[in-house]
Amino acid sequence: MWTISENKTWTYLEERFPWVQVMQEVPQDRIHHAEGNVAVHTQMVLRALEEDTAWQNLAALDRETLWAAALLHDVEKASTTVTEADGRITSKGHARKGAQTAGRILYRDTPTPFAIREAVCGLVRHHSLPLWLLEKRDPLKTLIQASLEVNTEWLAILARADVRGRIATDIPDLLYRVDCFEEFCKEHACWGATRPFASGEALLHYLEKEDAHADYVPFEQQQPKVVLMSGLPGAGKDTFIKKHYPDWPVVSLDGIRGQRNIVHGDKTGNGQAIQAAKELARQYLRKKQPFVWNATNITRQMRAQLISLFRDYKAHVTLVYLEVPYAQLTAQNRNREAAVPAAALDKLVNKLEVPARWEAQEVIYVTGQPAKTLS
C-alpha cells in the first residue's frame, strides 16, 4: 500500500522532508493559532485526525491519503506568510499554492499514484472551504465545482482536524461551520460524491451562466469537435495523437515554432506562434472540421483561454491529459528531437496544474493506468 512515510514520527519527517523541517520557522497569527508555529499546528492536526472515529473507520489507503493531506495542508504558509502593518499575520493564497506544491512533491520527489496524488491536492486546495463556504457569493456553485475536485466527506474530516488542532477562542463556531457544510453537501447531493449532470455541456452551462439551474439540460446542436491536449514535454502527446486521431488535422505549437525557427525562451516568437495557431484553429472551427490542438497547456489559465475560444464557436471540447512517471518523463524528453532543457522542464513541473473535471465537456486522464474518461 502506498504511504507518504512508513515512519510517522515528527523527528523522522523533519529529517526526511525539507518542507516539514521549515514549518517550525513559520509563525502564525496568535488570535487564530495561539498554539504556535506551523510545525506545532500540523502535529496537533495529525493527532486530531488520528483521534477522529470518522477517520479511523475509513479504509487503510483512504486514511493514508487523508493523513498525507493533513501533513501537507499548510505546506505553503512558508512562502505566503506575511506580517501586516497592524501586526497581524496572514497567509493569503497558501491553500491554492500548497496544492500545486503538494502535486510537485508527490509527482517528482515522492512518487505517488495519480488518483491518490490528486485526492491529496484537492484536499490541500480546499481545506478551508468548509469554514467559509456559506460566505461565498454563490455557495452552491462553489460547492458543486469543488465536489468535482475533492471528496467532500474527507474534506469535512480534514477541516475538523484542522480546527481541533489549534488553540483559539472560536473553535466551537468553526466546528459548527463544518457541520453546516456537511448538511449543505447532503442537501445538494455532494456529500462524498460528485453531483451528477446530464452531460458535460450541462455542467459547463451551469458553471458559465450566472443564473443557471443545476438541473437544466441545454439543447445540444451538432458541434465542431476539438481535442485539446495537455501534458508535460515528453509525456507522449504526439504518440497519443497518432494512435487515436491519425486522420485529424493537428494544430501544433511545436510544429509552428519549428517552421519559424523559434527557439525555446523566445517570448516574442512564441507569442507569434500562438497567434498563428489560434488563427488556424479558427479556420477549422468556421468549417466545423474536427482538429487536435497539441501543446503542453499545463496551466488552467492557458487552457481556459483556448476553451473559451473553441466554445465561442459552440465546439465540443475533449481535454486529454497525459502523464508518465517523472523518471520516464525526463528520459523521454531527452530522446525527443526538440528536447526541453532539464532546468526548464523542472520549471514546467512546478507550474503544472492537472486539468479539473469541470474545465471541458469531456476530460480524459491517461496516466499509465487504464484511461479514465469523465463526461
Rank of each mutant, 00 (worst) to 15 (best):
N335Y: 00
Q328D: 12
V217T: 13
P325I: 03
Y313N: 04
A304I: 08
L352T: 06
L253S: 12
Q332A: 14
Q332S: 13
R336I: 01
R260P: 00
G236D: 00
L228E: 01
G271I: 06
A273R: 00
N294E: 15
L309T: 05
Q305Y: 13
Y284V: 03
R286P: 05
Y284A: 03
P341K: 01
E279A: 11
L306M: 09
K243P: 04
N350S: 15
I256E: 06
V349S: 09
L228V: 06
L345N: 01
Q275Y: 07
Q332V: 12
M229N: 01
K243I: 09
G269R: 05
A339K: 08
T299N: 04
V320A: 04
I241K: 05
Y216H: 15
I256Q: 01
R286D: 12
Y245H: 15
K267A: 08
E279W: 01
G255Y: 13
I298Q: 08
Q222C: 13
G234F: 04
A281M: 10
K242T: 11
H244C: 10
S252F: 10
Y313L: 04
K287T: 12
K267L: 11
L280G: 06
I307T: 06
V320K: 01
E220Q: 15
R257V: 09
M229E: 02
L228Q: 00
N294K: 15
L232D: 01
L345F: 04
W248D: 11
P246M: 09
N261T: 00
I307H: 03
K287D: 14
V340R: 05
L280F: 03
Y313G: 01
H316C: 03
Q223Y: 03
V317K: 02
A343E: 11
G258M: 06
W293A: 00
I241C: 04
R303P: 08
P224S: 07
P341M: 02
A276F: 08
I307K: 02
F291L: 08
A327Q: 13
L309Y: 07
K314L: 07
V227G: 04
M229S: 07
V251H: 07
G258S: 10
Q221G: 10
S308M: 13
K242P: 03
A342T: 10
G231Q: 08
Q221F: 09
K267I: 06
Q259R: 12
D254A: 12
A304Y: 13
P290F: 03
W293G: 05
T318I: 05
Q328F: 02
E353K: 08
N333I: 00
T318E: 02
K288L: 07
K278A: 11
V263Y: 00
A273E: 08
V354S: 05
V263R: 05
V251M: 09
R286T: 14
G231C: 12
A338H: 01
N333L: 02
I256V: 11
D215F: 12
K243G: 00
L345W: 00
Q259C: 04
